[in-house]
């Protein structure tokens, strides 16, 4: 394994473990990892997505995408609010906070990599696809929670 491959494997493992921590600790939800795969493209589909750019010596991108109903459920779980009381702004804040916590946890686990994080970007809308142009492989982690699946994409250069 090359240094880069080892680094990418560490990033994927750190993100996977952070997903369990964030969803388990904050949302008190049971999450299972159903697939850890790889894609040649960094393509993220909504309807709800949160993205963060990794800067520093090892740049890259992390994104989490899930259905609106799932993000509503997670945000309700972590705030204690009733799902139907959450506004569109709450859902945007929520998906941004989820990717923020995922990247923060990942960054702590690979502290030696000197990763810097951008502020999160949140997207909410049907039929949208977000593409980050890269020629490097993207790790695609699929999880299941509350009978729905969500994905975490990570490309570490």
């Amino acid at each position: 394994m090359t240094d880069t491959e080892t680094y990418r494997a560490r990033i994927v493992e750190s993100l996977k473990n952070t997903v369990f921590e964030v969803m388990g600790t904050m949302a008190l939800a049971e999450v299972t990892a159903t697939d850890i795969g790889e894609s040649e493209e960094f393509l993220v589909s909504g309807p709800a997505a949160g993205l963060m750019l990794l800067a520093g010596e090892r740049p890259g991108m992390v994104a989490v995408s899930m259905s609106e109903s799932l993000v509503r459920g997670v945000v309700a779980g972590i705030t204690g609010a009733a799902p139907e009381s959450l506004s569109r702004q709450d859902l945007l804040d929520g998906i941004a906070e989820i990717v923020n916590m995922l990247c923060g946890g990942m960054k702590t686990k690979v502290a030696d990599a000197g990763i810097q994080l951008s502020p999160p970007l949140a997207v909410l809308g049907n039929d949208c696809t977000l593409a980050w142009k890269t020629d490097r492989p993207t790790g695609v982690l699929t999880f299941e929670m509350s009978g729905e699946s969500f994905t975490v994409h990570v490309c570490a250069l």
Binding site: M26, V75, I78, T79, G80, Q89, D93, E97
Partner: peptide, 14 residues
């Protein structure tokens, strides 16, 4: 700056 995080913290305190 996140209204959601303010709610999360308030819930955590409770």
């Amino acid at each position: 700056d996140s209204a959601v995080m303010r709610k999360i913290v308030a819930k955590g305190l409770r």
